[in-house]
Design a protein around this nucleic acid. Sequence first.
DNA 1: TATTGTTATACTCTATAACTATA
DNA 2: TATAGTTATAGAGTATAACAATA
Lengths: 148, 148
Amino acid sequence: MPTKTYLSLLRQLASCYQAFESYSAGHIRSLGLTPAQFDLIVTLGNTAGMNFKELGEKTLITKGTLTGVVDRLVAKGLVRRLASATDGRSQVVQLTEKGAALFARVFPAHLEHLKPAFARFGSSDLEQAEATLLRLRQAFEEARGRGN
Amino acid sequence: MPTKTYLSLLRQLASCYQAFESYSAGHIRSLGLTPAQFDLIVTLGNTAGMNFKELGEKTLITKGTLTGVVDRLVAKGLVRRLASATDGRSQVVQLTEKGAALFARVFPAHLEHLKPAFARFGSSDLEQAEATLLRLRQAFEEARGRGN
DNA sequence: TATTGTTATACTCTATAACTATA
DNA sequence: TATAGTTATAGAGTATAACAATA
């Protein structure tokens, strides 16, 4: 396999993600949230809440950072901390009423913001693209698992 | 088009990029560089240098941030600033001998690190994946250009 | 007047590790 | 001993805007 080929694929992946991020982040910031904060709100949306460990696994934010991100969302009144009923060391983070209302308002709005980008994609295009990305992701995860 | 479909494609894109980033960033940090610094070194590699404006366009780092990133690379002795010959306001950033030597050593090593992930991709797989990402990227750029 | 790069401000995220309270 | 979350530290990227020098 020629080096040049996978290198240009990687460049495309990075450019594509950056294009998505820059398109998406502009809208998120206009809501007064950072991408990490939005990620947390969306992860907590339509759930009864979850502890820091689960939240860290889903968002890929490490626990030290997570404390700070949650602090800022608490300060905005969007989430609250509750003691876990089953584990005295553990806390549950959940959306407040205000946070749930924000989620209910901004998540659909964010999807509407993203939707026009897919105007020319039919459902088979979408499925094919998703399959390609899945395969690529698994390739990285396997290589990582092999300790490369 | 069902909302669910493009949403899951976007999740795949984010997961895929994160898998790449985490696989790639580990290696970059082991070289004592941050991803942004590595990006700059690679961008400047095999060139005679470029000014801040060009550098910002290629790396998508805004000019305010760029001053700081370049400062840190200057402190490491990897790049230098030169006054532009043609524009008194402008400066050219170029790799020092030490920076060029680092580039010559780490860029191929980084490609070797990435290569095993593509073990099961044939050249038609790579081309197809690249075409998919290109199409997706253009969709975001067009939507952004339309001011969505 | 517009552009290039610097500086300043204030915030946010990252990595790491020591620490506490509980399991 | 191990785990959940907090705190502390130091560094790095982000957005924004004001600014000096030059075009």
